[in-house]
Design a protein around this nucleic acid. Structure first.
Length: 416
RNA sequence: GGAGAGUUGGCUGAGUGGUCGAAAGCGCCUCCCUGCUAAGGAGGUAACUGGGUAACUGGUUCGAGGGUUCGAAUCCCUCACUCUCCGCCA
């Protein structure tokens, strides 16, 4: 949620900024709602104040045994008017809140302008593309079985077998250990979240169709960002405890509504995938440094895995709803001969903190925190990048040496 | 699944219809006393939010939502969560 005061005071400027990311601010609607709010609120509060005084008088008069009937009539009149105005006020407040919840975050000043992903900026390329492999992971091994998964659950799921399943487990351990080494505290969290939590991080109310909802009104988490960030919802964090650095491995569940026909083959786009998430909660003045820090933590995984990748800065038009600045990390996928997203690292400024009510206290001053998160990394995509980049054309996948201790061997048996 | 007890300020905890945003204690802050420390004394100390340049001044909040009432922390209903006992279970 953006700052309503800023919206009020700098509405034209804010509208312009929002337009750079493709959001058309309905200025008239906002000004009219806010104006109604002000008028109604003043009048409701005045009536409440009057009633409070008169009700006090009522008590005194009654205890002295005198007649209260005329006073009651007066209070009844106030209550009638109050009821009408308060109901109006509540409905205006709801509309105003809905309006605010729908507005995306403001892009940071230095985010490149652009309308869609073609305007994103490649910041750097790292690692050398050496693989001559052309075939994709499904052809490399039969141990990624999407047919079997279809029998068990449906499309966009997968079953991993044998060494491939073990490799995924090794990647998870490796990534978590790297995060811990970098100062993140590991968490095991619920894989379902309530609507409050999802509202806090910005998935609700606008993107409900992207989520799986359970029969008792919980949602399967689309990312560990949701539980990790909300660990500190409604908290006031002491400055000396910042930066707060959290990590968790979780499965992630996404309905992929609206992505029919995209990446239908293989592990790229699944309803369920494993991810290690990094979250930082920091003071506002440090947040861009923290984003760089978190980005480097994610890049480190790719470096240790010796996978070629590039870092892309998203332009204003391609930013996610809650983000003020995002770097995507894209790994080289030989079978597609292009870079594919494997991590997205974002600074949400105070957008999530305002929704989730996360504050930081320093010298008696309390201010909204800034939240930063990113994947380090999406495990399924890392797995296939590893398979495709390291496939020797015969039957072996040679592992980078940093992964060997976690996998327990240098070669993955792909069994076909 | 069954039975019961709870949820009040930073913390402990009192309050069962008005003078209660709320006793008392702890903690914290300021001052006094003191060579220092300890002890002691005096005072202060909730959050959120509206209006106002400000001084200031309103409102809301006692788990959440609804109801009764002129008036609700207090009475009634619904829900969430916590704890205890029994059962069951990884």
């Amino acid at each position: 949620m953006i700052d309503i005061k800023k919206l009020r005071d700098e509405i034209d400027h804010t509208g312009k900024i929002l337009l750079t990311r493709g959001y058309e601010l309905n200025k008239e609607l906002f000004l009219s709602l806010d104006d109604q709010r002000k008028t109604l609120q003043l009048s409701v509060e005045e009536l409440q104040s009057k009633r409070k005084k008169l009700s006090n008088d009522f008590g005194k008069i009654k205890s002295s045994g005198e007649d209260t009937s005329s006073l009651k009539i007066e209070i009844d009149t106030i209550n009638k008017e109050l009821k009408v105005k308060d109901e109006l006020l509540q409905s205006v407040l709801i509309s105003l809140n809905d309006f605010l919840l729908d507005i995306p975050n403001l892009p940071n000043d230095n985010v490149p302008l652009g309308s869609d992903e073609t305007d994103n900026v490649v910041v750097k390329k790292c690692g050398e593309i050496t693989s001559k492999n052309k075939i994709d992971h499904l052809e490399i091994t039969n141990d990624i079985d999407t047919d079997l998964a279809a029998k068990l659950a449906g499309s966009r799921f997968s079953v991993l077998k044998g060494d491939i399943a073990k490799l995924q487990r090794a990647l998870i351990s490796f990534m978590l250990e790297t995060a811990i080494k970098n100062g993140y505290q590991e968490f095991y969290v619920p894989y379902m979240a309530n609507s409050e939590s999802l509202k806090g991080t910005g998935q609700l109310p606008k993107f409900e169709e992207d989520l799986f909802k359970t029969t008792d009104n919980l949602y399967l988490i689309p990312t560990a960002e949701v539980p990790l960030t909300n660990i500190h919802s409604n908290d006031v964090i002491d400055e000396k405890d910042t930066p707060v650095k959290l990590t968790s491995h979780t499965p992630c569940f996404r309905s992929e509504a609206g992505s029919y026909g995209r990446d239908t083959k293989g592990l790229i786009r699944q309803h369920q995938f494993e991810k290690i998430e990094l979250v930082q909660i920091v003071k506002s003045q440090n947040s861009m440094d923290s984003l760089d820090d978190l980005l480097s933590n994610a890049e480190e995984i790719l470096e240790l895995l010796e996978l070629p990748y590039q870092v892309v800065e998203l332009c204003t038009g391609d930013l996610g709803f809650s983000s003020s600045k995002t770097y995507d990390i894209e790994v080289w996928m030989p079978s597609q001969a292009k870079y594919r997203e494997i991590s997205s690292c974002s600074n949400f400024s105070d957008f999530q903190a305002r929704r989730a009510n996360i504050k930081i206290k320093s010298d008696d001053k309390k201010e909204l925190a800034h939240t930063i998160n990113g994947s380090a990394l999406a495990v399924g995509r890392t797995l296939i990048a590893l398979l495709e980049n390291n496939y020797d054309g015969k039957k072996n996948i040679n592992l980078p040496k940093s992964l060997v201790p976690f996998f327990g061997s240098e070669v993955v048996n792909i069994s076909n």
